[in-house]
């Protein structure tokens, strides 16, 4: 009798926990159709992790650099770990997380996120953090990123966050409950459409141009971590025309790079050299590069990585050739698909 009672309790617990697990899987956003940026962070874990270059940052890395071009032109094995409005502490913990799996030769960090000193939007936090595998880095990233209305428990049990999504479920939610669809190309978000940049207004005057203490703390931590692991940290500012990049910000980053002996490249100042044409190379009027712009930028940056930083050309490695062959095929297929879509 007692045995039967225990069996009933255990069975009930299994059924309840199992159904809650399934519900959570069903309700969590899949990021396969709209706002695919939310899927980028998790995709990394499916990769073979022996990259020489890892990009860390926000949309200014995942929309402006193409690892496929870097491989095709320079044999550079690279990956982008970025998500929408990825804040600097999220980038730092993502770097920590990456270093649990591999130690690249170079880490490239885009400095735009230095402008944020405090947590911003919950939706972006979710996209930057949720895809991370559980580790202390993820825990710390959550703690550093939460806005006042967020709760740690909602990250541990995402069903608490997405509980009301049941009324918005689509077929994709069922289809991708246990499988994912590759939406990026080594973290690169492809867009082939064109929307020329118009008149870009001057930045509005700010009350204070000084980057925040918190932002500097994490930049310091990133620098220290890279030094500790023997990684070369490169700071870049992508050639996005907006959000506006102030001269005062530029001066601070230049100073920081000099003080810490880091390579810093501001592509806003190299637009002509790279050959970027803002009537052709952007899909959203200058905020981000389209495929054409990203490939031009990757061509230019690849040259620096290859010649100045001495990142090895690994195009001769058969194993990597196999992997990249598949990636290139997927890249070309999506390129064609998008050209067809946008030419209609």
């Amino acid at each position: 009798m007692k045995k039967k009672r225990w069996l009933t309790i255990v069975l009930t617990a299994i059924l309840i926990l199992g159904s809650l697990f399934l519900l959570q899987k069903l309700l969590m956003p899949k990021y396969v159709a709209d706002v695919v940026e939310g899927a980028f962070i998790a995709e990394y874990y499916q990769e073979e992790k022996n990259h020489d270059v890892v990009f860390i940052g926000d949309c200014e890395v995942y929309e402006n650099f193409s690892p496929i071009t870097l491989w095709q032109e320079y044999g550079i094995n690279s990956y982008i770990r970025g998500s929408a409005q990825q804040l600097i502490w999220q980038s730092y913990y993502l770097l920590e997380d990456t270093l649990r799996y591999e130690t690249p030769q170079v880490v490239v960090f885009n400095v735009l996120s230095m402008k944020y000193n405090e947590p911003q939007k919950e939706a972006y936090n979710r996209m930057s953090i949720e895809g991370m595998k559980w580790s202390m880095s993820k825990v710390k990233s959550i703690q550093a990123s939460m806005t006042s209305r967020e709760n740690f428990l909602d990250y541990v049990f995402p069903i608490l966050r997405y509980h009301s999504r049941w009324s918005q479920l689509t077929e994709d939610d069922l289809k991708y409950m246990f499988q994912t669809k590759q939406v990026s190309h080594n973290g690169y978000y492809m867009r082939v459409d064109v929307k020329a940049a118009g008149e870009i207004p001057e930045g509005k005057p700010l009350a204070d141009y000084q980057f925040g203490e918190n932002a500097y703390t994490y930049l310091d931590k990133m620098t220290a971590l890279c030094k500790e692991k023997g990684i070369q940290l490169i700071l870049i500012k992508a050639p996005s025309l907006y959000p506006y990049w102030y001269d005062e910000w530029e001066a601070q980053i230049e100073q920081y790079a000099e003080d810490n002996d880091l390579l810093y490249i501001n592509y806003l100042e190299l637009v002509d050299e790279v050959g970027i044409d803002f009537t052709q190379d952007t899909y959203d009027a200058g905020l981000h590069m389209n495929l054409s712009g990203a490939e031009k930028l990757s061509h230019s940056f690849g040259q620096i990585l290859s010649e100045e930083v001495q990142v090895p050309n690994r195009s001769g490695e058969a194993h990597l050739q196999e992997i990249w062959k598949e990636k290139i095929a997927a890249y070309e297929a999506e390129k064609q698909e998008q050209f067809t879509k946008y030419s209609k």
Binding site: N151, L160, R161, H163, S164
Partner: peptide, 8 residues
């Protein structure tokens, strides 16, 4: 859990 008006 699912219909409660709680959270963000």
């Amino acid at each position: 859990l699912l219909m409660g008006a709680y959270g963000i």
